[in-house]
Amino acid sequence: MSLPPYTPERPRHPYEDMPYTGRKFGQAFHLFCRGCGYGAIGQLLCRVFKEERLDEKKHPFIVGVGCYSIIPLILPGRIWMTLHGRTLPVATGIKLANPDVTPICLAGDGDNLSIGTNHFVHACRRNIGIVLIMLHNNIYGMTGGQAAPTTPHGMNATTAPYGFLETEFDAVSLAISAGATYVARWTTAHPRQFMKSVKKAIKWKGFAFIDMVSQCPTYFGRKNDMAQPVDVFNWIKGNSIPINKAEGLSPEELQGKFIVGEFKESPREELSEKYIELIKRAREKKK
């Protein structure tokens, strides 16, 4: 039997030997495809953790299932990998049980807009203090390039060889109409803005949603005549329009574009705080 050794020793200071390329299990390698955007996103999250000096007990990462499930290999803090699409209800349980903890959920577009859409819209509605970073690569990468709810109309995928007939989901509009209080979208072409957004979301009281568009050269690129990783990156970059510039454009002009920016910032009472008030009220009433 040959199991990898377990190295439970922790660094003296949680941030002391945390290189941006990761420290989990002391690994010096990653499992991402060449040109994948997720490595960069993981690195950006590491930087947020380090710069903000976040307490890992207060900010566990709740991770779903998808290509991005290997991001935690380079992430600091505690990782809890859940079933496909169930990140948000698990985080809801954690948050209600421990109102001083703010879980950071990593979910994919398949997690969040397909199998777990129900949980997503209701978490937005409840305004529970969770950070949700949706990693959006337009395709199911882990299972081999099947069409996702975010695959743009007409694009190819392994389950849409003649072009995707359906229309893609706009997660941002969905989150806004469902009642999320902080909503933003960035792409891998906007790393600094994304970091700023994550920092804001972690301190946000309520449900914070960030739609992070990333490139998948292996499946999305190859299936759609973008042979080089940088082609997909450029496709995303070229299709991104800042929110202030998008305002004057017609729906036709915005077809297939990624509008980036901070869409909504309207604080509302947070659920777990309200629940503590409810406990006080219920106990008062009982007396």
Partner: peptide, 29 residues
């Protein structure tokens, strides 16, 4: 539950319910 300091939530479906229960169970309750 609120009378004894517990937390109650009505989830969106049974899958959400049991997932929240798993979350809370490792959250210490």
């Amino acid at each position: 539950l609120p009378q004894v300091g517990g937390r109650f939530i009505q989830m969106e479906d049974e899958i959400g319910s049991i997932s929240a229960v798993v979350g809370a169970a490792l959250g210490g309750l």
